[in-house]
Amino acid sequence: MQTYACGHINPDSDSIVSAISLSYLKTELGEACTPARQGEISPETEFILKTFGLEKPLLKNDFSGDNLYITDYSDLAQAPHNLKETNILGIVDHHKLGDITTSTPLECWIRPVGCTNTIVKEMYDHYKIDIPKNIAGAMMLAILSDTVLFKSPTCTKADTKAVKELAHIAGVEDFKKLGMEMFLVKSAVKGASPRTLLLRDFKDFDMGGHKIGIGQLEVVDLKVFDEMKEALFADMKAYKHEGHRHTVMLLLTDIMIEGSQFLVVSDDESKIENAFNTKLVNHEMWVEGVLSRKKQVIPVMEKQF
């Protein structure tokens, strides 16, 4: 029976890097653990891995008969196939508590911080395990990604402290400059298919018995989407139908002016309008100050459903 650490489907940088960082920690503690991923990596994550010379985690969508540490989620909708046949050893996460249950006790590190890697950093400190320079650098960028360079309302003092300490370990003098380089890579959307963009950071949620899918693309200038919206809407409609979803939303988030353009395909658009007290015009609306799907979108959506 092998042991793995793995994040959610359509993995973002936090999911990928936390699988790597947690696996190294567990292995150092005497429990051989292999990092895995449930999907292809994004250009941003590829930038992080290449910058610090790290390999992609193993691509794996079924852990039947294996041990598993879950990172960056606790919802069944984001879990691998046949989870009931998997021995879950622990959960490390920074989201709301989801609906995954176990038949035996497990290790849980769940904290209201901006990034799972902030929690993993605290685990290293707790166990007094040194973090390798390359893993520290990747963790640093993952935190900067999830906290949108500290601009997100999810960002805490623990996140900023972790970034500074990880930057020191990694030997990075100007972490903000490197973080902006990462976001410029993240903003490069030309040439990518609508489906690739929709699923780059996409999660399904169960809200009142309805399947709600919400994706997010964070860029430094929303103009990159000017000629792509028609194709994005067409693919959102197709993906909604394919998955029998009530709603598919795509947040186009501008990290510079700090807000999000919502693209919405829904059986009931009034739910979204009521949630944000804003009217949709041609299935779009701008919501000032929205940077975090986790803290500013999911909670208000769940109240409506």
Rank of each mutant, 00 (worst) to 15 (best):
M1Y: 03
Y4W: 02
A5T: 05
A5N: 05
I9M: 07
N10I: 10
N10L: 08
D12G: 09
S15E: 02
L25N: 01
G30S: 06
A32H: 08
A32S: 06
Q38G: 05
G39Q: 13
E44T: 13
F47I: 06
F47L: 15
I48A: 00
L49D: 04
P57E: 03
D62S: 02
F63L: 12
D66Q: 15
T71C: 12
L76H: 05
A77Y: 00
E85K: 10
N87G: 01
V92T: 15
L97M: 13
L106N: 03
L106V: 12
E107Q: 11
I110Q: 03
P112N: 10
V113F: 01
C115I: 01
E122Y: 05
E122G: 08
M123H: 03
D125E: 11
D125S: 02
H126S: 10
H126Q: 12
H126Y: 15
K128H: 12
I129C: 14
I131E: 00
P132Q: 07
K133C: 08
A136V: 11
A138Y: 04
A138W: 00
M139L: 10
A142H: 03
V148F: 15
L149I: 11
F150E: 07
K151G: 14
T154P: 00
K164N: 14
L166I: 12
I169W: 00
K176L: 12
M182W: 00
L184A: 08
V185K: 03
S187H: 03
G191D: 14
R195G: 06
T196C: 02
L197Q: 11
L198D: 05
R200L: 06
D201F: 10
D204A: 04
D206K: 09
G209W: 06
K211Y: 12
I214A: 08
I214S: 10
E218P: 01
K223Y: 09
L232A: 10
A234I: 00
D235V: 04
D235N: 13
E242T: 13
T247E: 04
M249F: 07
L250E: 09
L252S: 05
T253C: 10
T253D: 06
I255E: 00
G259R: 04
S260T: 04
L263G: 07
V264A: 02
A275H: 09
N277T: 03
N277P: 00
T278H: 05
L280S: 13
M285C: 14
V290M: 12
V297F: 06
